[in-house]
Structure formats: structure tokens, C-alpha cells
Design a protein around this nucleic acid. Structure first.
Lengths: 340, 340
DNA sequence: CATGTTGCTGTAATCGTTTACATTCCGCGT
DNA sequence: ACGCGGAATGTAAACGATTACAGCAACATG
């Protein structure tokens, strides 16, 4: 109940018998002061219980002390590990990590609210829908290299980005199915217009061509990374005249929905049809059947994105500007795939 | 590339031909100025593109302009919807939402780093492990009613909290299984010492007693809400002499792990054994078999927690202080349960 | 001994708001 | 005519840090 009296830098200065400037210097650059002074200051800080006031520091230093993470949908578990990685990556920096959900409000409003308001120093975006004019405008104002895209990216702009090897992943999946003897391979895509959808679909089709496998238009099934879209895809497959023997899904969530629908329709996975996912979220290993999938290290993607942004914010600006990192993928063979 | 010149309040004042005080007043309390003045100021703001500098405002008003959400493990999808709810709940306020993962660093360090540093005005904690002395110390410093617990809570302290009807949920589960003819009902718990573990286990046992159902010590299986712990529990059950015919799990994740392990061990769910979960995360509906579970509206829990905290921060302090809200639960009957 | 150099430290301006207090203006009652 | 009250506005002092600049030893150099 006792109201705490705020300890200011001047209190520390008094306690240590030095000036405020010396205290400030001791904190930001300890080597510049005498050893005796340094010790006196640290002792005074300890005694008084001083903690630097961020608002004051931020005001003076003209920064926000925070970064924003733009998440397409916080409700989607796919993003949680990425968030964890980003959060870990900013551990030890004195930047706070803010989050905003782009599901409801459009990104432009958010960008305006945060960037222009000076509430943030930089941003990691997991959402490529957020682009266009507003981002270009921001970029023109010089914040362009304090923006990093993770997982997704924007095709024609050149912001820094971290992504997994989407093409390699698609190839791994197709090659593996091919090796199992599958010829009729379908693909459950992500949402229309999405860069990941495009990258994975194109790579999948290229590999299918390379291996001289048959292709039918209805084998490219439009999804949107969601459970429900996978479930719906199952209905379409069940109704097909030329039913594929394997399906490569652009996301694990889609694969779960698909399997659930296929099983409900009386098919057995993998006996009647093989399913392979993309992402390797925690649950994949414990699904029934355990999901064969392409693993992308989501935590590492988050950490790397954080690293890139920190380099821009803390280091010499321009160091890591607009660089692009790619994280390798891995085929996780489990029980949802089998011989044709 | 053009560096933006920052527009200050004084620039607006000049443009509108008034003083800075008037501009500030117009912004914070429009009714107090003349209509003509107000319009002139708004016009000047529009023309200059002025945006208030949060750091300066925060410094002057002695606040942080942010709230912290303490998440036990960001990697766990269970929390994502709660986060989404909290995030939505703070939409439109001028508080930023920060997140911190308590998985690595202990809460005390985090609380210190954030609360004492004045980086936040309030906090929503999803982690009850964070309690003890540090929290008591904070509470003594008067921030006690700017702390809200969601999902979990601390037994002996009285902070505001939002929780689901854990007891009612456990009863629903047991009654349903009982109605299906099950007598030998086991329970997969949460981690030791956790309030949810305790609440659900006690209620489950009480209901079992009330219905005069048999109980064996090995039918209470220690878990920790994780997939892996559920999988491990399956091994134990498979090895039991007196095997239960149904298992009530304290979490959906545990239930998934359990089913995955039971199936791997040659059992069929629900023919050989019924499994019921708790939470109803998105995936439950699409698991194979679709999981019968107790649904708690996680988004609503998050929104309610946000609401409580906002009331404390924005309204007259003490309004919603230390209040406790309970969110109802619902039995979702699906395919993982069947007659004994 | 004057002078320049080096190395710490202190003084005070600054960051951009909010707001207590002072001021001005105007209408109105006596 | 005078003073008074109240509304609208202005002036300037905070808020609590950082840092340019100045000051001051101590010391080496010529």
C-alpha cells in the first residue's frame, strides 16, 4: 500500500557525490569514468534502488524502445513458435516486443498507428498482405530497412526477409511420394495470391513435370492453410473420377483437415491415399496417423528475423539492410504416407 | 529516402495561430475550447500531419502506455486464442500489448524488468507459477490491482482473475462418461502444483465419489498438458492390470498425445477406450477421431481479462479491482467417446 | 615557467508533451 | 461606472533522462 517514491538519476548522483552526467555516463559507457567513481555510482544505484526511466530515455534519444510483430492471425498455432523465437531473439535487448493481429484491422491502419506514431522502432511482419502503397510510403520515409518479413515476403519490394526453402520442401515431398511409387499426386494449396502458395505450388508442379508425372487441373485444390479448407478438399477428392493416390498439402493444418475428411469419407490413410504436410507443427508427430511432413524450423525463423532487425536497430545502420536469409527444411517421414 | 521532419505540437500551434496549451487541450478535451478554435486546430493538425509523440506524453503523464502479457509458453497453441482475445480487447485503447515468455527466464526477473522499470502500466498473467514474494512485493507497492490473472490464478492471493468453470467442466465430463456406462474412469492431470491441475482433479474425484464409481491410485496419471506427457500416459495405461475404460484428460493436448499412444499400442478409440479432453482447441474437431471435450471460450477469456485490466487503468481505479470472473464451459460431444 | 595535451567531471540545454497558474476578455449586476 | 465571475487562452514549469560543451586537474614538453 505504501506508495513508492520514484528514484531519479539526481538522487543517485547525490548519493554517490557526483553529477547526473557522470551517473548517466557510468550506465551507458562504464569505461569512460574512473574506477572509484564507477564503484561509487554502482553502490549508490544499489542503495537507492534506482531504475532508469524508459520514457525519459526514449524521449531524449528519439526512439520508441519497442518493435512490432504483425501476425496475420494470432489464433493460428502455426505462428506461436515463430513468436517464441522472435521473443527470444529480443531477450537481452532493451526493446519491448509488441504484437498486433492483422486479422481484423487492415495493416495500413496498424502501420499508421504504430510507425508514424513513433511507438515502434522497427517491425517484423509475418503477413505479406500488408504491402502496397502504405508500405511504400513508409519505406520512402526511411524506415524501409527497419522492416523484416518472416515466413512470407513481398515479391516486388526488397525488404529484408527470412523464409524457409519452400521450393526445396516441395521437391522433397514430391520426390518422396514418387519414390513410394505414387504417380497421381494432388496438391492442396494455400490462399490465393499468397507468396507461399505460389512458391510451393510452382515448385511442386515443376518437380512433377521433371519426373514426368501426370497432372490434372482438379488435382490442384485451392485451400487456405486452415483445417476447414482441408476438410472441404477431402470432399472434392472423394468425389473425383480420377482420384489421386497422394496429396501434398501446403500446410499441416490443411493436411489435418484433409485426413479428417478422408477418414470420415471411409478412406484409410495411408493405405488408400497418402498425405504429406508442410510445417511440422508440434501436433504432427501425434496426429493419427502421425503426419509425414516438411519440417521448417519456425523458432529459428523467428530468431533469425529478430537477429536481422536487431542488427539494423543496434548496429551500424545498413549492416544487414535488406538481406535475405533462407532456412533449410527437412523431410519428416511418419505414418501418413505409404506405397501407392 | 527523404528524412521526415518531425512535426511538434508547437508547429501545429503556429499553424493554427494558438498556443501549445490550446492544441494539447483540443486533443485531450475538445469541449473545453471554442468551436472556432477547435476547427482551426484540427485543420492545422491535418495540414501539418502532426502525430503526438508518445514518449513525451508518457514521460509527462508518468505512465508507460503498455501492458504486458505473461505467457507460460508461447510455443503452446493453447494460448494463441487467449492472446488474440487480449489483443482484441485492447484495440482502440492507447495501450500497446507486450508479450513475454516465462518459459526461459523466471517471472521475477521479468516482473522486475517490466514493472519496476516502468515499462508497463499493468499486466495479464497466464502463468500462476509467477507468484510468491516478488509479486507480493509488487503488490505492496500498489500495483496489485493492475494485475489480472487469466485461465490460471493464485490460490492465496487475491488478484483479479478470469477463469473457466473448471469444476463444472470436470463434472460434465465424468457425468457424460458415466451416462455412457463407464465405471472405470482414469484421469490424466496437468503439471504438479498447478491450480488447474488441482481444480480439475479434485472436482473429477468428487464427482466420481458422488456417482459411487471405483477409484484406483494408478488411475490418476500425472501429466503436464503436453503431447509428450499424454503419449507417455498411454504406455502406463497399456501396462495396467486393471485398465480403465475411459480417460478424462485435463487438456486437449494431453488427450491427443494419449490417443496417439493408445492407437500405437494397438487399441481403438473409442471402441476399446474412450478419451475426453479439456479446452476444445481448434484441432480437436479435426483430430482422428474427433475429440470429445470440454470447451472453454479462450478468446472470451482473453477479452474479459483485457476488459478488467482496462477498467482498472482507464476508469476510476478500484472499480473492477480484484474482481473474479468465471466463463462457462460446454461439453462438445464428438467421436473419441463411446459406450463402455 | 608557459603551454599544450589528456582525462574526468560538472553545468545546462534539450527531447515534446501536459497542466498549474496567470491573464485577458466580456457580460452583467449593483 | 465599477467590480466581479467565468470562460477561453497563454506562459512557463515540470516530467527524467542524455550529451555538447566547458572546466579543471595533472602532467609532459620546450
Amino acid at each position: 500500500m505504501t506508495q513508492q517514491k520514484p528514484v531519479r538519476i539526481v538522487d543517485v548522483a547525490r548519493a554517490a557525490g557526483v553529477s547526473v552526467a557522470t551517473v548517466s555516463r557510468t550506465l551507458s559507457n562504464p569505461d569512460v569514468v574512473t574506477e572509484t567513481t564507477r564503484e561509487a555510482v554502482f553502490e549508490a544505484i544499489r542503495v537507492t534502488g534506482y531504475r532508469v526511466n524508459r520514457a525519459a530515455r526514449n524521449l531524449r534519444m528519439q526512439r520508441a524502445g519497442a518493435v512490432l510483430v504483425l501476425v496475420p492471425s494470432l489464433g493460428n498455432p502455426f505462428f506461436s513458435q515463430i513468436l517464441a523465437g522472435i521473443s527470444a531473439g529480443f531477450e537481452g535487448s532493451d526493446y519491448s516486443v509488441l504484437i498486433a493481429d492483422t486479422a481484423k484491422h487492415d495493416c495500413n491502419a496498424i502501420l499508421e498507428r504504430y510507425f508514424l506514431d513513433g511507438r515502434i522502432d522497427g517491425m517484423i511482419s509475418l503477413d505479406s498482405r500488408c504491402g502496397g502503397e502504405e508500405l511504400a510510403k513508409l519505406s520512402a520515409q526511411g524506415v524501409g530497412d527497419r522492416i523484416v518479413f518472416a515466413c512470407e515476403w513481398i515479391e516486388d519490394a526488397d525488404f529484408a526477409s527470412v523464409r524457409c526453402d519452400n521450393e526445396g520442401g516441395a521437391r522433397l515431398a514430391i520426390d518422396y511420394l514418387h519414390g513410394l511409387g505414387h504417380r497421381a499426386i494432388a496438391h492442396l494449396t494455400g490462399p490465393a495470391g499468397n507468396v507461399l502458395t505460389h512458391a510451393r505450388r510452382e515448385a511442386m508442379q515443376a518437380e512433377r513435370r521433371r519426373l514426368d508425372l501426370p497432372a490434372r487441373p482438379e488435382w490442384i485444390i485451392r485451400g487456405d492453410f486452415s483445417l476447414a479448407s482441408g476438410h472441404e478438399a477431402a470432399r472434392q477428392i472423394l468425389a473425383m473420377e480420377h482420384r489421386p493416390t497422394a496429396v501434398f498439402c501446403a500446410s499441416d493444418m490443411g493436411a489435418f483437415g484433409l485426413i479428417s475428411g478422408l477418414v470420415a469419407g471411409g478412406l484409410d490413410v495411408p493405405r488408400d491415399i497418402s498425405v504429406i504436410g508442410f510445417d511440422d507443427i508440434e501436433l504432427s508427430e501425434y496426429y493419427v496417423p502421425a503426419l509425414t511432413t516438411i519440417r521448417q524450423d519456425r523458432r529459428r525463423i523467428g530468431e533469425t528475423a529478430a537477429e536481422l532487425l536487431r542488427a539494423q536497430l543496434e548496429g551500424a545502420a545498413g549492416t544487414a539492410a535488406r538481406s535475405r536469409r533462407q532456412i533449410g527444411v527437412e523431410l519428416m517421414i511418419r505414418q501418413s504416407t505409404g506405397p501407392a
